[in-house]
Design a protein around this nucleic acid. Sequence first.
DNA 1: AGCCGCTGCTTGATTGGTCAAGCAAATATC
DNA 2: GATATTTGCTTGACCAATCAAGCAGCGGCT
Lengths: 157, 157
Amino acid sequence: MSNPSAATPQPLTPDEESLVRALGQVMHVLPRAIDADMVGDRQLPLTEYTALMNLSETPDRRMRMNELAALCHLSLSGMTRTIIRLETQGLVRRERCEEDARGSNAVLTDAGFARLQESWPSHLAAVRRRFLQHFEGFDLAQLARAFQRAGTAETTD
Amino acid sequence: MSNPSAATPQPLTPDEESLVRALGQVMHVLPRAIDADMVGDRQLPLTEYTALMNLSETPDRRMRMNELAALCHLSLSGMTRTIIRLETQGLVRRERCEEDARGSNAVLTDAGFARLQESWPSHLAAVRRRFLQHFEGFDLAQLARAFQRAGTAETTD
DNA sequence: AGCCGCTGCTTGATTGGTCAAGCAAATATC
DNA sequence: GATATTTGCTTGACCAATCAAGCAGCGGCT
């Protein structure tokens, strides 16, 4: 091991190590657990839920695909497919954009809104019970800021 | 909407809200970012890296499939496939288990160990830079415990 | 010994995502 | 105002994961 550029990085401290491992576990377990809670209770996979939720938060319940994709942390094509899935369930409709005819708006239908209303409480409960619950004594705002920093990916820099 | 158990949940506080959103972002961005760092530097996707790493930490560099799968947060079939991938690259070998002939051991080859040695520094650097870096003032041990609790999925309870 | 159910892993089918290529509308350039 | 470039989204091909079904070896029971 005499490669100079790769040489002698200090290993993680035990605390760092266990934090990293625990995060790995959480990243894996949490989405499934929340999904499972919702599916059990009121069928709606997390990705689709997120899409509906973001739509519902706009004033007129519609959004351009690219914007929605960004909010859902999805590629544009992933978003297209999610919307198609939702469309076949009648929860969303697509409309050609008026001021720019190559654009589409995903529009939350009444059925979609109703569906979201139904799912919302169980999603909320799942998030509390699976996640927030375990961070009771913490300074959530500070924690949120740290995660925001970590979640802002610099390309490679 | 008259299901009593789902009635009138309190919405999240703004801090809770932003923590949840930020975590969502991190869960999405971090693995890709780390993957990208490693791929760019020393090609080895995260899942495969994790498998090699876990193998390397055993005394004789071998482990039963089920145990390895658990450590990698992977289903047994997912593990089989990952090992197959690694096997075709010569980084791992499979041996039938001596004391129980239906079992397999995944065994880290010398090539695999060397590969891991090569990738290790860039993986470590990525973890530090992408994640740990942002938690400098924090009590990591306390944080780790909270994540451990959150990562321990009660089936539905 | 001989069957039966259990265990450990693999395999087939499906799912939900990615990237790359395609297409149509918009915009810039000449 | 025609042509070239860019933009917004969709589509095709692929990939890594999942679940469910399969199969081989193990072990208990009679």
